[in-house]
């Protein structure tokens, strides 16, 4: 009974799937899917290597400091870093006093309350604070940016396919639209052509415009490429501040597990030594 019912149900599903396949195939043959414009012009992130690539790669504190400088001078006016706290900057190699000074002099103040009147007020940041948002709310952010919302950058490297190389490619990827780009895909007002961006037209104006836009404290030549990579490295750290710690721990854990597994395998062979030997004895006797 189960088998007869099953057979009928099976025929039903197979039949309907075949029906769908038939119509799908007819549609596919009569109107082969055309390649989309996005697909044709979109480019994959350039192959940029970072110091923190791979299991043995680690962040370069010097680079992170440079990247932080780029963030501070170029990005911070529009983009928040809301899940990162000033105290986290210790990871970049800043001292206690430096972190305190960075927080105190941060260009955006932390919202607070006037203790006498209860009116909204603002105060300087302290290391325990997270980076204050540049805009009070989404509406304010959109109003100031031609209705585009500058995303928070705390997690941006993990929130985009391609990670840090994608960021660096995007930042240096602004260019004039190619001549054969269809009119409807050309950047409208307030948009900028960038083949690394998913739909080719990004609302963010080119942030890194000229060599030497930032004067690095450590004397590194601030080329556009250098600034793009440094800030991408900084944002990678901001998205995953524990990555170095994680990989260090991982190497110890994996080595430990490998030794434990080998020992376990040897112990397993020992335990099975008796039965195996008996089998061999029986086989030999025959």
């Amino acid at each position: 009974m189960v088998r007869i019912l099953g057979f009928l149900v099976g025929l039903g599903f197979v039949g309907v799937a075949a029906w769908s396949l038939l119509w799908g195939a007819i549609a596919y043959i009569s109107e082969p899917p055309a390649e989309t414009v996005e697909h044709r012009f979109h480019e994959h992130p350039r192959d940029i290597s970072f110091s923190f690539d791979g299991p043995f790669g680690r962040y370069n504190a010097q680079q992170l400091q440079r990247g932080f400088q780029v963030y501070k001078e170029v990005c911070a006016a529009c983009h928040g870093l809301h899940y990162v706290a000033f105290r986290d900057l210790h990871d970049l190699g800043y001292s206690e006093a430096e972190v305190r000074a960075i927080a105190d002099q941060w260009q955006i103040q932390v919202p607070s309350i006037n203790p006498d009147t209860g009116e909204p007020a603002a105060r300087n940041a302290i290391p325990a604070d997270r980076f204050p948002n540049p805009y009070a709310n989404e509406t304010a952010a959109r109003a100031a940016n031609n209705n585009a919302l500058p995303p928070d950058l705390s997690l941006i490297v993990k929130a985009r396919e391609g990670g840090a190389p994608y960021m660096a490619s995007l930042l240096t990827g602004y260019q004039d639209p190619p001549g054969n780009l269809p009119a409807e895909n050309r950047p409208g007002t307030g948009l900028h052509y960038n083949p690394y961006f998913a739909n080719l037209n990004i609302a963010m104006p080119p942030p890194i415009t000229a060599d030497g836009q930032v004067t690095y404290a450590d004397g590194t030549q601030a080329t556009r490429e250098q600034m793009a990579e440094d800030v991408s490295a900084f944002l990678a750290w901001a998205a995953e501040p524990k990555a170095d710690q994680r990989k260090n721990m991982g190497i110890v854990v994996v080595l430990f597990l490998l030794i434990a597994t080998i020992l376990g395998r040897m112990a397993y062979k020992n335990v099975w030594y008796g039965p195996k030997r008996e089998d061999e004895a029986v086989q030999a006797a025959e």
């Binding site: 994680r246 990989k247 991982g250 994996v254 597990l257 490998l258 597994t261 395998r265 397993y268 020992n270």
Partner: peptide, 22 residues
């Protein structure tokens, strides 16, 4: 004994994901 060593091997694979490509 057999499950023990096999668990070690499987956990090693899990650890590779957790620590190096989470």
């Amino acid at each position: 004994a057999k499950d023990g060593w096999f668990a070690g091997a499987a956990l090693t694979v899990l650890a590779l994901f957790v620590f190096f490509m989470p």
